[in-house]
Design a protein around this nucleic acid. Structure first.
Length: 104
DNA sequence: TGCTTGACATAAT
DNA sequence: CATTATGCCAAGC
């Protein structure tokens, strides 16, 4: 079932992310089959449908940091969700990818 | 229809 | 080790 749109594909991969684990945009892009389009992954979440139960809060940048320029509210929410799942944050709000990065 | 921007990544300095 | 510069592709205007 190959969706012509890339967004649905990205959403599907993000749904595969287990709780208590985080994935980087680049990693997701690679799993989707669009290695190098890490930006589109973030773009997809920017255009994310509100009715979707998408664990977008498990998606962080390569630095294990939250990056949301247009949604400061979601930024706080993401940290809350991850902490609720057992993910520890550093002083700079950076997650220990060595321990929490999702391994497909 | 074409240019600009963008929830990133990687290499170079 | 931190910051800067460039590359990638799709969506928005």
């Amino acid at each position: 079932m190959q969706e012509n749109g890339i967004y649905p594909r990205i959403y599907r991969i993000i749904r595969r992310i287990p709780p208590g684990r985080v994935a980087t945009y680049g990693q997701i892009a690679r799993l989707v089959g669009i290695a190098g389009h890490a930006r589109q992954v973030g773009y997809a979440l920017h255009s994310m449908p509100e009715g979707s139960h998408l664990p977008w809060h498990r998606v962080v940048n390569r630095n294990g940091q939250i990056r949301i320029p247009s949604n400061p509210l979601a930024r706080s929410m993401q940290r809350t969700f991850l902490e609720a799942e057992g993910v520890a944050f550093g002083a700079d709000e950076c997650i220990d990818l060595v321990k929490y990065q999702w391994k497909a």
